[in-house]
């Protein structure tokens, strides 16, 4: 038995089960949680649209994030710029395979994987697929857990900026790539939050209830 079949929904804030005052197909979109006073929707409102919009925005931002430099290294010999990929290649060439792998996974593999998973989830829910629910649930969990780890690259840039700061001798400054990459991380996190995992388990006609 699922909560939706009994006209019940969980409060997103305090996890209290809340009964919907009227039958859900006759209009009422929110119930008020008696415990914490927040609005309780039966499902996250416009979940698919919001997720799709945020994922598409993050894909758009992902292009400049990769093409523009993450940081500029100013030395007396001139200025060097580093993109995400050149940073990874630098580590691989200099033999630190583990660190190269961490950066590659965190800033290239994870964001792309996350976007693809969310697109796949939105697509399957939209088409009303009822197969592979357990696998899809695992995929969703994965996006929630690994999403924040993409921030590693932004932090690396910021720590380099703080440590390599010798006035005119050598200095590191942030590039536009870092800003776009930050936006990609934030947008994919918001997209994962906008997606309602309960939709995976709903039977198709319940979607727009």
């Amino acid at each position: 038995m699922r909560a939706i079949d009994r006209n019940l929904a969980t409060c997103p804030i305090c996890h209290q089960l809340v009964r919907f005052p009227t039958h859900r197909r006759t209009g009422e979109h929110y119930a008020l949680c008696p415990r914490c006073g927040s609005e309780v929707p039966l499902r996250k409102p416009a979940s698919l649209q919001n997720t799709l919009a945020l994922v598409l925005a993050s894909i758009v931002f992902y292009i400049p994030a990769n093409l523009l430099p993450m940081m500029h290294v100013h030395t007396f010999a001139g200025t060097e710029s580093d993109t995400i990929m050149s940073g990874v290649l630098y580590f691989l060439e200099s033999g630190s395979y583990l660190i190269g792998l961490v950066i590659f996974v965190a800033s290239i593999f994870v964001p792309i994987l996350k976007m693809l998973i969310l697109l796949y989830l939105v697509y399957t829910v939209h088409r009303g697929k009822t197969t592979r629910r357990k696998e899809r649930r695992r995929l969703y969990l994965l996006t929630e857990v690994i999403g924040r780890w993409s921030m590693v690259d932004v932090y690396v840039v910021s720590i380099m900026i703080a440590l390599v700061h010798f006035g005119g001798l050598s200095e590191i400054r942030a590039g536009m790539g870092a800003v776009f990459f930050l936006l990609v991380v934030i947008l994919t996190m918001l997209a994962a939050m906008a997606f309602d995992p309960r939709l995976i388990w709903d039977t198709p006609k319940e979607h727009y209830a």
């Binding site: 038995m1 019940l8 929904a9 969980t10 089960l17 649930r137 309960r198 388990w201």
Partner: peptide, 15 residues
């Protein structure tokens, strides 16, 4: 509602 029921955040199952 009874407090001995709880619904799953992921799949909406009443437990």
């Amino acid at each position: 509602m009874s407090r001995h029921l709880i619904s799953c955040h992921e799949c909406d199952e009443l437990c």
